[in-house]
Simulated scan of single mutants.
Amino acid sequence: PTPNAIKREASSRRIDVQANVRGHDLAAVAVEVQSRLQKMAFPLGYYAVLQGEYAELRATRERLQLFALLALAGIF
Results as ranks from 00 to 15, higher is better:
Pro1Ala: 03
Thr2Ala: 10
Asn4Glu: 02
Asn4Pro: 04
Ala5Val: 11
Ala5Gly: 02
Ile6Ser: 04
Ile6Ala: 05
Arg8Gln: 04
Arg8His: 06
Glu9Ala: 08
Ala10Cys: 09
Ser11Ile: 08
Ser11Glu: 08
Ser11Lys: 07
Ser12Gly: 11
Ser12Pro: 00
Ser12Lys: 11
Arg14Glu: 11
Arg14Gly: 11
Asp16Phe: 13
Val17Lys: 05
Gln18Ile: 14
Val21His: 02
Arg22Pro: 07
His24Trp: 03
His24Gln: 13
Leu26Pro: 06
Ala27Gly: 00
Ala27Thr: 10
Val29Tyr: 01
Ala30Arg: 10
Ala30His: 04
Ala30Phe: 00
Ala30Trp: 00
Ala30Glu: 02
Val31Pro: 00
Glu32Ala: 14
Glu32Asp: 12
Glu32Leu: 12
Glu32Thr: 14
Val33Lys: 02
Val33Arg: 09
Ser35Ala: 12
Arg36Thr: 09
Arg36Pro: 05
Arg36His: 11
Arg36Val: 10
Leu37Glu: 02
Leu37Asp: 07
Lys39Asn: 14
Lys39Asp: 15
Met40Phe: 13
Ala41Cys: 13
Gly45Met: 05
Tyr46Val: 15
Tyr47Ser: 13
Leu50Ala: 05
Gln51Arg: 11
Gln51Gly: 12
Gly52Thr: 04
Glu53Gly: 04
Glu53Ala: 14
Ala55Val: 05
Ala55Arg: 11
Ala55His: 08
Arg61Phe: 10
Arg61Val: 07
Arg61Glu: 08
Arg61Ile: 12
Glu62Val: 04
Glu62Trp: 00
Arg63Gly: 01
Arg63Ile: 12
Leu64Ile: 13
Gln65Phe: 01
Leu66Met: 04
Phe67Pro: 00
Phe67Leu: 13
Ala68Glu: 07
Ala68His: 07
Leu69His: 14
Leu70Met: 06
Leu70Asp: 03
Leu72Tyr: 13
Leu72Cys: 13
Gly74Ala: 14
Phe76Asp: 04
